[in-house]
């Protein structure tokens, strides 16, 4: 049986919950110390696609930043897609996602991505209104309101990203 794998980078500002969001759903192999030492941590996640096809997402959890510098750009090279993560309780993290996406687009072009508006379990503290969410949905193709605490929508978001990557990179699987 053929196997498919794809590099996916998780991008977002500090403390938006990038690591926590995917942590419950991935195969952890490396310590989070890598995030602070070399700025990235690798996890993998098998995503089942239609047609009994499994796509292994190699998740590059890039250390939180509101703007890429040299090494982060290197980490993005060869990625098949992005997971953009913002904190609903801090609206400025959405701007950081926007900046990061633009930077990656400028360097590596348009790639499949999903936008996770995280910390859905803290909606009372949110700075993002429904209207803001609607505008985000227009700006970003796939917006998911997720909770790292409850795991809401994380699997769906990863599944959707897998499908988009498969459509783009592995059309014969569709």
């Amino acid at each position: 049986m053929n196997q498919f794998s794809a590099k996916v980078c998780i991008l977002g500002d500090f403390a938006v919950g990038k690591t926590s969001t995917v942590e419950r759903f991935v195969n952890n192999q490396f310590s989070e110390k890598y995030l602070t030492t070399i700025g990235v941590k690798i996890d993998t996640k098998d995503v089942s696609l239609s047609g009994d096809v499994t796509l292994k997402l190699v998740l590059w959890d890039v250390a939180g930043t509101d703007r890429f510098s040299g090494v982060e750009f290197a980490y993005l090279r060869g990625a098949s897609g992005y997971i953009l993560v913002a904190d609903g309780t801090r609206s400025r993290t959405i701007s950081a996602v926007r900046t990061l996406k633009e930077q990656s687009f400028d360097r590596y072009g348009e790639l499949p991505s999903v936008f996770l508006l995280n910390k859905a379990d803290l909606t009372r503290e949110w700075e993002v209104s429904d209207e803001d969410q609607r505008r985000l949905s227009e700006e970003f193709a796939n917006v998911y309101v997720t909770s790292a605490k409850t795991g809401d929508n994380v699997t769906a978001a990863l599944g959707r990203l897998g499908e988009m990557i498969a459509e783009r990179d592995f059309p014969k699987t569709q």
Partner: peptide
């Protein structure tokens, strides 16, 4: 797969740094 990616990341980190 994770080891492979991590090695690449470390190499990128060293190269950039």
């Amino acid at each position: 797969d994770a080891v492979s990616a991590m090695f690449t990341a470390i190499q990128d980190f060293i190269k950039e740094s």
